[in-house]
Design a protein around this nucleic acid. Structure first.
Length: 184
DNA sequence: GGATCGATCTACT
DNA sequence: GTAGATCGATCCC
């Protein structure tokens, strides 16, 4: 399942068509491993919210964080396994104007999970939907392992020591205290 | 039925 | 660099 997360780096996530199109090349993702991962929403079993995680590969799981933000996952594991990849950030390639309009600002458009969803126009309505229905994901070529950095995951309180956050090497992503987590 | 906490973002000091 | 916002899901009584 970590292989799939790495393959997402360099892939393109997009919404809309024509003038409404917004496309982002992913440079930062995190892997979550269902029942085996204390940090996963699926760790405590299936609930109404996380039901999409238990679906087939390619299912979207969108949830609200801190009451205000949306975060988007793509299910990667087999049906019932609840493995998923959190899309955290990337480089905006298409739809700059629309992204700025949705975000209400001209900077920091897609450099975080909530911001990524807002720029793409992704909301909870899409949770439980499937890739290619409203959101498209085009896998890029697999990156050489040397181009991928594995680090601790961000913003969670459990299992921080698992290095399941993958960043494209060379991507500058300001995040204070990023490497102050407990050692593995 | 009530309390608590979060896979975050923004604004202000 | 630090604190506040804000609400649904989950957990405890």
């Amino acid at each position: 399942m970590l292989d799939v997360a790495k393959r997402m780096l360099g892939s393109t996530i997009a919404t809309g068509e024509g003038a409404d199109r917004v496309a982002v090349v992913l440079t930062e993702v995190e892997a979550y491993d269902g029942a085996n991962d204390p940090a996963s929403h699926a760790f405590r079993g299936q609930t109404p919210r996380n039901t999409p995680m238990f679906g087939e590969p390619g299912t979207l799981y969108v949830y609200r964080s801190y009451g205000i933000h949306w975060c988007m996952n793509v299910v990667t594991g087999r049906t019932g396994q609840a493995s998923a990849v959190l899309l955290r950030g990337g480089n905006l390639m298409v739809g700059l104007d629309l992204a700025m309009e949705r975000r209400g600002r001209t900077d920091h458009l897609v450099d975080g999970p909530g911001k990524l969803c807002q720029a793409l126009g992704v909301t909870g309505d899409l949770s439980g939907s499937t890739i290619d229905k409203g959101v498209t994901l085009a896998l890029g070529a697999a990156l050489p392992s040397a181009a991928i950095e594995a680090t601790s995951r961000i913003g969670i309180s459990r299992a921080k020591n698992r290095k399941w956050r993958f960043v494209m090497a060379g991507t500058v992503y300001p995040r204070p205290n990023e490497f102050t987590d407990e050692p593995a």
